[in-house]
Design a protein around this nucleic acid. Structure first.
Length: 561
RNA sequence: GUCCUCGUAGCUCAGCUGGAUAGAGCAAUGCCCUUCUAAGGCAUCGGUCGGGCGUUCGAAUCGCUCCGAGGACGCCA
């Protein structure tokens, strides 16, 4: 049931003359006290050559549908109040039957979407900068599945490239095997930073790094051995972080190195299609006039980022036959993905349009980009540890009798960090603010979890009593909840269309706020058994949607906290 | 310099395809646990929606322009 559509159809049937269905706007007013739905009649006034008020009045006089409880004409608007009883009964039945499936749709028709996200760099600490791609990608995976798509999650590990030349060089020159064995990621991170510090005095090092990478790419066994070792240690470390975050296993961990033997065919094809051009010793593909060319091969013959991404795109198209390929990567790489699409388009493949760069703003520190090169990035596990510790403090303080307090602390602390990152998904940058992340009040993950836990403790009182809806009074607080729950499926669709988890995040915050108002203003459990049962059912379906919303975002929902 | 993104309350941000007095959270101040989890609720304070011009019955939203912030711009990823 789509109420907006029903309203549109009803009005269309009244105003058949000279009108397109799309001329009729049905919107949600800002203030729900004005109406549940509002139809502005200003644009209709022009078409029908009557005043907006007259049109609204005319519609009102002819509307006849039990779904409308009341219709008002105000300032050129037609304000419609929906029949509370019908919708309440409908939504209760719907959600109690569908449970967590509520809001799912089959829009995707089982088509395949591959999502490339997280993709941390080997031998570098998992920094807070990588949190965004990880949690946004994870949420998008869930959201796409909820919309009926088949999703392939790919962790495109940053395990190849000049950075490894630099690292191998630095390790050979300053590295200490014992230290690296004890504390691999930190030590390697230090070496990487040291390398970039030394470059300032000795720019020739840049070339040494490149040389080492070329060596690696040519199969030098000592370099490969080091690379293997670095990679193995890194993966162990990453696994810990993913576990902590509660991120499921990826369908593929094919990183950049995986495409080593798959680049030649792409380069050959570019050549055969006369797209490859020799320029300053390097091979490039010229794109548009106002864009730098795509560098396919360096003058020393080594490959580049886009070469590997091209090979990856072809591999994925061939193996997964995707309908869409999403890349959840920061917006500073916009040019790279524009080039990637253009090269594929120039090669004559129309599926280049299915490649979508899902960009997001950077995490800034003091208004500037964080840089692993200068050792400025903040480690993710440190932030998570602090959040978990704080959650633990809350629990010790307020629910000292809680049994699995360690597990709940983890869920709440991590939930706070994830929600903080997802609530404001915009392409603009965000300033890293630990204080903000460690706030568990207001529009936060713990607020939603707390609301949910509260409902779960209420539900102990639930019995199985049949409700006669004719006897139930539906007040403002209840109706707000029901109407909000009604809109969840629409939100799920919009989150997919916009590739935007924050649609879900802001929705469940609103829902939790509405519930807390309901909770504060009504005694849920009282002597009237039937009314009590009704309020408990409302609470229960709110919890179902809250939990499902949290699941979509990758946030766990403890039953007690 | 060229291109991209952005500029809404002291801070962090919502604001759907232009629509009715611009909304939350945090911070500040004052209330509410002899009622179900106070990680909660209520109230007050707080805005010339960066400036200007234009399109429109109507602009935070669209267009132009200026100012400001950040990013990208051939051998990093």
């Amino acid at each position: 049931m789509n109420l907006k559509q029903v309203i549109k159809d009803d009005i269309y049937n009244i105003l058949t003359d000279h009108l397109n269905r799309d001329d009729i706007l049905v919107e949600s007013p800002k203030d729900r006290k004005m109406a549940d739905y509002a139809v502005p009649c200003f644009s209709l006034a022009k078409i029908l050559r009557k005043s907006p008020n007259d049109i609204a009045q005319m519609i009102k006089d002819n509307l006849d549908n039990e779904l409308y409880e009341n219709v008002e004409v105000v300032n050129g608007y037609l304000n419609i109040f929906i029949n509370k009883k019908i919708i309440t009964e409908y939504i209760i039945n719907k959600i109690t039957v569908d449970k967590s499936k509520y809001g799912s749709n089959n829009f995707g028709n089982n088509k395949t979407i591959v999502i490339d996200y997280s993709s941390p760099n080997i031998a570098k600490p998992f920094g807070v900068g990588h949190l965004r791609t990880t949690v946004i990608g994870n949420a998008l995976k869930n959201i796409c599945e909820k919309n009926g798509y088949k999703v392939i999650s790919i962790n495109h590990l940053g395990d190849w490239g000049t950075q490894f030349g630099k690292l191998i060089y630095a390790y050979k020159k300053w590295g200490n095997e014992e230290l690296v064995r004890q504390n691999p990621i930190d030590e390697l991170g230090k070496l990487y930073v040291k390398f970039h510090k030394e470059i300032e005095n000795n720019p020739a090092l840049e070339d040494e790094g490149r040389k080492c990478f070329k060596n690696l790419e040519d199969g030098d066994s000592e370099s490969l051995k080091l690379w293997d070792w670095f990679k193995e240690e890194s993966l162990k470390e990453f696994a810990k972080t993913y576990d902590l975050l509660g991120i499921n296993k990826f369908d593929s961990y094919a990183g950049e190195a995986f495409y080593n033997d798959k680049m030649d065919s792409v380069i050959d094809e570019l050549d055969a299609k006369k797209l490859l051009e020799f320029s300053d010793g390097a091979y490039v593909v010229r794109l548009t006039d106002d864009m730098p060319p795509a560098l396919i091969k360096r003058s020393d013959g080594a490959t580049l980022y886009i070469t590997r991404d091209l090979a990856a795109a072809f591999y994925r198209k061939k193996n997964y036959n995707f309908d869409e390929a999403l890349y959840v990567v920061g917006n500073e790489q916009t040019l790279h993905f524009t080039q990637l699409k253009l090269v594929i388009e120039k090669m004559g493949y129309d599926w280049s349009k299915d490649i979508k760069h899902i960009s997001f703003g950077m995490v800034l520190q003091d208004g500037k980009k964080m840089s692993t090169r200068h050792g400025k990035s903040i480690k993710l596990h440190e932030v998570l540890d602090e959040a978990i510790e704080l959650a633990n403090k809350y629990i010790k303080d307020r629910s000292p009798e809680l049994e699995n307090s360690d597990e709940v602390s983890r869920q709440v602390g991590v939930g706070a960090v994830i929600f903080n990152d997802l609530k404001n998904y915009r392409t603009s940058d965000i300033e890293f603010n630990l204080e903000e992340i460690l706030k568990f009040e207001g529009e936060t993950g713990p607020y939603i979890q707390y609301t949910n836990a509260r409902i779960n403790s209420l539900l102990k009182h639930k019995q199985s009593i049949n409700i006669d809806y004719n006897k139930i009074k539906i007040n403002e607080f209840t109706w707000n909840l029901v109407f909000k729950l009604y809109s969840f499926p629409e939100i799920v669709m919009r989150a997919k269309e916009k590739y935007d988890p924050s649609e879900i995040a802001t929705y469940i915050i609103d829902l939790a706020q509405d519930f807390n108002k309901f909770y504060a203003n009504e005694k849920i459990i009282d002597n009237d058994k039937e009314a009590t049962e009704f309020r408990l059912i409302i609470s229960e379906i709110v919890a179902i949607v809250l939990e499902e919303g949290m699941r979509l975002l990758g946030i766990e929902a403890p039953k007690k906290m």
